[in-house]
Structure formats: C-alpha cells, structure tokens
C-alpha cells in the first residue's frame, strides 16, 4: 500500500510539470509582454522603479525557459505567483481566498453528486425497467443535456419572478464583508445549495448512469448467487457484495468528475455572481491580467490532480485487486 502511494505520487510530478508549462504558455500567449499591457492600461500609475523591479524580477529579457524557471521556482519556493496589474497587488494575496471557496464548493458538490447518484443508481439497477428506473433515466438525459449556466439562469429567473428575490451570491449583504462566524457560516449554507445543484446536476445524471451500469454488471455475477446460496438475506447480499464492488469504479469517477465540477464552478460563479475564482478569472482574462489568470489555471488544475490522487488512494484502499498489484 505504501509503495503504491509512493509510486502514485511520483507519477503525479510529470503531470504537475506539464500543467505548469501549459499555465505558463497561457500567460505568454497574448501578444506582447505585460509591460505592453501596463503602458496601455495603467499609464503613469506605476513608478519607473516598480517597472524596473518587475522587469528584473520576471526577467522579461531572458530566454523563455529561464523565464519559466523563474516563474515556477518563485511559486514553488517562495509562494510568489507574480503581480496582478489589474488589482495592483501580488497575485498570492488574491487567489487563496477565492480558491478556498472554489475548493469548498467543488468538494461539497462532489459529495452532493455522490450522495444523490449512488442510491438512485442502485435503485435503478435493482429495479431495472421499473417506473422509477425509466423516470430517473429520463431525468438523467435532461440533466445531461442542460448546460449548467442555463440551469442557473432558469433558477435565477424563477427566484426573481416568483419569489421576488435574487438568488445569486454566496452571502447575504449583511455578511458580505463580515468576519467569519457561525452566523456567517449558516448564511453561506443557505446560499450554497443553489450553486451546488446547478454545478452538480449534469454530473449527478451521468453518475446515475455509471452506477446503474456498474451494478447491473455485478448483479448477475456468480458470487452474488453464492452469497444467496449461503442463506444470506437479499438486502445484506446486495449491500455486502454487488453494491460494495460496484462502489469501486464509482469512486474512481472522481478523476473525471472533479475537473468538470471545477469547470462548472467557474462558469456558474460568473452567472450566479459568486465570490469564487470564476468572475475573477474571467475579469483577469478580459483585461489580460495574465499572471493572475495563469495562477488560477495552475492552481485549479493542481487541485483536480490532487483530487484524482486522493481518489486513486481511496480506490486502492477499497479494492485489494489494485492494492496487491
């Protein structure tokens, strides 16, 4: 098990390096360097010393690979993500709070997706071709076909039109800038369910299908018959054997569910005006504030890679066939 984890962590390193290269490319893609953006957007608002410092710090005259090295080593060794020209603050001051909320929303949504799709998938498989199976299959298709931002729009429209309130945001105005407290947490929870449903619906629909198919595969395996022939009750047979085994591929879905949840969180945040990475990233891209944008892309991707790592370890812990490979 320890060897497995070690190997798995080792395998993650090239992926992370690739991600950092892609993020760096995104930063470099817009024509000109940031001084161009600077002279265009913030004329006269920065002192020549500041500019000179930045030019030196990010080595704009250096070859590309050296620039990359300076950028990435700054992040890894000093936590220095560069400078946001739009906000005139170091990027590291901006991203952590927003990232934290993104992580929170993505994680809670993941739990929501699992908590909903698992029992429904089980029900659909055990009662195959029943009314509830058809019903959830139909709902699932609709859920898959609806872009999450559209769902957000519809929810907002319904809230606005019929309940006379805006459903956007994560906090009520009075808590917007208040320090953290239990009351603020409660307020967050009261707002959180809308983005969770919006972000999670499509993936819930998909995972219901995955769980249903997995379990249908397992239900007719001989070991289930063995369990029944031992005299085990139907419910205990299902839970201990096929459902338990169908859980493994279900856990492994985190690898592709998490990236799309993070994607969904970004776009939904724009619509629902959530104080997460979404609006900030979009704003940064629009104003070509590339260090901020690149850092977000780097951190969001790292987040999903770490999530995948956790799911792989979880899977190895659950499935001896992987553990003893």
């Amino acid at each position: 098990m320890h060897i497995y984890i070690f190997k798995r962590v080792l395998m993650m390193i090239p992926t992370l390096i690739l991600i950092s290269i892609v993020a760096f490319l995104v930063i470099q893609l817009p024509p000109g360097d940031f001084l161009t953006a600077l002279t265009a957007g913030m004329e006269g608002r920065m002192t020549p010393e500041e500019i000179a410092y930045l030019r030196e710090r990010y080595g704009l005259n250096d070859p590309m690979w050296l620039q990359y090295w300076k950028w990435i080593s700054g992040i890894v060794f000093e936590g220095d993500f560069g400078y946001s020209f739009q906000w005139r603050r170091p990027v590291s001051e901006l991203i952590w709070s927003h990232l934290g909320l993104t992580v929170l929303i993505s994680f809670v949504t993941l739990l929501f997706v699992w908590a909903v799709s698992f029992p429904i998938g089980v029900l659909s498989a055990v009662r195959q071709y029943s009314f509830s199976d058809y019903f959830f299959t139909f709902i699932g298709f609709i859920g898959l076909a609806t872009p999450n931002f559209l769902l957000a729009l519809v929810l907002m429209y319904v809230g606005f039109k019929y309940f006379g309130q805006s459903v956007g945001g994560l906090f009520s105005p009075e808590y917007q800038n208040a320090p953290w407290s239990w009351a603020k947490l409660g307020d967050l929870m009261a707002h959180l369910w809308i983005p969770i449903i919006v972000i999670g619906t499509a993936k819930t629909a998909e995972l219901i299908r995955v769980m249903r198919a997995n379990l249908l595969d397992e239900l007719h395996k001989p070991y289930v018959a063995t369990a029944r022939s031992k005299g085990l009750g139907e419910m205990r047979t299902l839970i201990k054997y096929p459902i338990r085994i169908a859980l493994n591929p279900f856990i492994s879905t985190i690898g592709w569910v998490l990236p799309s949840l993070v994607s969904g969180a970004v776009i939904t945040a724009v619509v629902l005006n959530l104080p997460t990475t979404g609006p900030l990233l979009l704003g940064a891209l629009r104003s070509q504030d590339m260090y901020l944008a690149g850092s977000f892309i780097l951190m969001l991707s790292t987040l999903t890679v770490v999530g995948t790592l956790i799911s792989d370890i979880l899977l190895a812990w659950l499935d001896p066939r992987i553990r003893y490979q």
């Binding site: 070991y223 018959a225 054997y241 085994i245």
Partner: peptide, 16 residues
C-alpha cells in the same frame, strides 16, 4: 442444502 458453482474465479467475491 449447500451449493458449489462451476466457476471458482467468479463465485467468490474478489474484494473480500
């Protein structure tokens, strides 16, 4: 009454 199945690979649960 106890039963023995044909396929010993699949008649035992792989994860127990």
């Amino acid at each position: 009454v106890a039963m023995i199945f044909q396929e010993p690979m699949t008649s035992l649960s792989p994860v127990h």
